[in-house]
Design a protein around this nucleic acid. Structure first.
Length: 475
DNA sequence: AGTGCCGGGGA
DNA sequence: TCCCCGGCACT
């Protein structure tokens, strides 16, 4: 299906369909992913850049044009000269531009643009939606290329995106055409943006993933997902130094074709060679889904900081170390074998860490409870068990009271969300128990009232008169 | 029930 | 800010 659609688009001679971004290059229409890939290939630049699908500077467009044009020329399948010419005039052509052609400046610009785009995207709420993409390919490109900066977890969006990465994977059973189709339908629109930015270096993103993301982002349309099956089939690029994993066969083929084989055309040019460069891998999506589920509902800010070193066990009990476990440690996209772990999981930790920083206060050192009352103790121990590690002050009492778990190691015993909820509950619920804690211990000594009696109220200290804590006979 | 005092409200 | 008081916790 994808291919068909792609072909259709690509062959359409006329002006490309209107898009928010402006007329996209022909390549774009073929397949967003393809286009993307093209760019990458054309660049050949090692640096990875990813464009989330957003707009572009004229410069980039220009560039792309050139690329397309070149491509067309190469394309054995060239339909007709007129067609080609039209393409060139109208939009872009698909001629490949020699890698060398791209100057460093251009590359830099692209980076900058990409970064900007990402930034803008990150702010958008949509980005966090599950469908968001993440390039799992990250592993490869990410590591390989130093330029990933923009895409690094540091950005807000990135965190969300990475997690969401799984979504694509889920959907992607190559065998099922439907998802891709939907994605494809939107491709034309997205592509332009991608293309513009897209100078990106090979690899950061998976075209297919991107497509999905883009569609979701732009159209806000839910992409059909399959999470029912715990096992998902993924396709890993076997190309040297490229560990890219895509959810769809088409995607991986495109990736190989465009990025590694340097072929612009989608299925047209395909001679099946790309089949040799990828392998099918099965992923257990349960773990991923779990991670998402736990993650998604919670706002990033809510997440608690997982201990830096992720626990070895892949599936720690929720009650214990839930946070820490979320980010499965070992997931390296490059290693499909990691049982069920996916790039997503890998990326996840970083995101969490980021979040973590925000809430570092939660991991603050234990504070002692001022009042000695037994209540406080019991309270803390019982209801707060989970919150052991965290300390917070309660403002409603005059003397700020801080609760602390007795214990305490920063291990988060519960999911952060859970923990948080408790915390909130405690905070929100005023002081019964706390009152006792904070409330002054009744002074044993004599007070004005006792000393002077009601008759001599005049002699009382003002505080006593006002029914405040006695200032004269303080204990 | 008496006492201490917090939290709130009126002037 | 001063003053008063309702109301609660504690004795």
């Amino acid at each position: 299906m994808n291919r068909v659609c792609a072909l259709r688009f690509c062959r359409v001679p006329g002006p490309s369909p209107p898009s928010a971004f402006g007329a996209p290059p022909c390549g774009a229409f073929r397949t967003p992913s393809g286009v993307f890939a093209l760019r990458n290939s054309s660049n050949g630049a090692p640096e990875s850049q990813k464009v989330e699908g957003v707009s572009l500077s004229p410069e980039t467009v220009e560039e792309q044009r050139g690329v397309d044009g070149k491509r067309v020329g190469r394309d054995p399948d060239a339909r007709s000269v007129s067609l080609l010419e039209q393409k060139r005039k109208v939009v872009s052509s698909s001629i490949d531009v020699p890698h060398a052609r791209r100057s460093e400046e251009e590359v830099d610009m692209d980076k900058v643009t990409a970064a900007m785009v990402l930034t803008s995207l990150s702010t958008s709420p949509l980005v966090r939606s599950p469908p968001v993409k993440v390039s799992e390919g990250l592993s490869g490109s990410w590591k390989d290329n130093g330029s990933t900066g923009p895409f690094t977890p540091s950005s807000n969006s990135s965190s969300g995106g990475y997690w969401s990465w799984s979504a694509p994977s889920d959907q992607s059973n190559p065998s099922t055409p439907s998802p891709p189709l939907s994605a494809d339908s939107f491709k034309p629109f997205r592509v332009p943006s991608l293309g513009g930015v897209g100078s990106g270096p090979a690899g950061l993103e998976d075209p297919s993933l991107e497509e999905q993301d883009g569609s979701s982002l732009l159209f806000d349309e839910p992409i059909p997902r399959k999470r029912k099956n715990s096992m998902k089939v993924m396709f890993k690029c076997l190309w040297k130094n490229c560990g890219k994993v895509l959810s769809t066969a088409a995607g991986i083929q495109r990736h190989i074709r465009t990025i590694h084989l340097g072929r612009n055309c989608d299925s047209d040019c395909s001679d099946g060679e790309e089949d040799f460069y990828y392998t099918e891998i099965k992923l257990n999506t349960d773990s991923v889904a779990e991670g998402l589920s736990s993650l998604s509902p919670v706002s990033p800010s809510v997440l608690s900081p997982p201990p830096p070193p992720p626990p070895p066990s892949p599936l720690p009990s929720l009650t214990q170390l839930s946070d820490s476990h979320r980010p499965p440690p070992s997931t390296d996209s490059k290693e499909p074998h990691a049982g069920g772990t996916t790039p997503l999981s890998r990326s996840a930790p970083s995101a969490l860490y980021l979040i973590h920083t925000d809430h570092a206060y939660q991991a603050t050192a234990p504070v002692s409870i001022p009042s000695s009352s037994s209540n406080s103790t019991s309270l803390a121990s019982t209801s707060f068990t989970p919150t052991n590690s965290s300390s917070f002050s309660i403002s409603w009492q005059s003397p700020p009271v801080t609760f602390t778990g007795n214990t305490v190691s920063p291990s988060k015993s519960q999911g952060f969300g859970e923990q948080r909820s408790q915390t909130i509950a405690v905070l929100s619920s005023p002081p019964r128990a706390t009152t006792a804690l904070s409330r002054k211990v009744r002074g044993e000594g004599k007070k004005c009232r006792k000393v002077y009696g009601m008759e001599n109220r005049d002699m009382w200290c003002t505080a006593c008169r006002w029914k405040k804590a006695c200032q004269r006979f303080t204990d």
